[in-house]
């Protein structure tokens, strides 16, 4: 049985905010299944009692004083925005 179905691909694509056509879903299901199959090699490993490593350095959260600092000017912040109006970023309607 395939590990990844086309339905799952569509669900994951929605989570990732990607649109996929039927054709793409079919191809992706096959490719992801291959990669996941390869990744399942890790199941050979006994990881009982092994701590997960998210970061290799012994690092900690770095905090700074909560003081005001200069930030981007409005004009700069909008420089790369694809659409804007009255000094604000403009997006299509959020609610139908």
């Amino acid at each position: 049985m395939a590990r990844i179905t086309q339905e799952q691909v569509k669900h994951v694509a929605h989570l990732a905010r990607l649109s996929v056509s039927e054709e793409e879903a079919e191809k992706l299901a096959e490719e992801l299944d291959g990669i996941i199959g390869f990744a399942e090699k890790l199941n050979e490993l006994d990881t009982e009692g092994v701590e997960p490593t998210t970061h290799v350095l012994d690092i900690h959260n770095v905090l700074r004083e909560d003081v005001q600092r200069p930030s981007l000017k409005q004009e700069e912040a909008l420089k790369n925005a694809p659409d804007q109006e009255d000094g604000q970023v403009k997006v299509p309607s959020v609610l139908e």
Partner: peptide
Amino acid sequence: RRIMLGTFALSSGYYDAYYKKALKART
């Protein structure tokens, strides 16, 4: 492809089997 793979590995029900397992392998 990689965004899809990553989103899948982090998604509910697969997180432990894939993402967390890989973190342990990393150790």
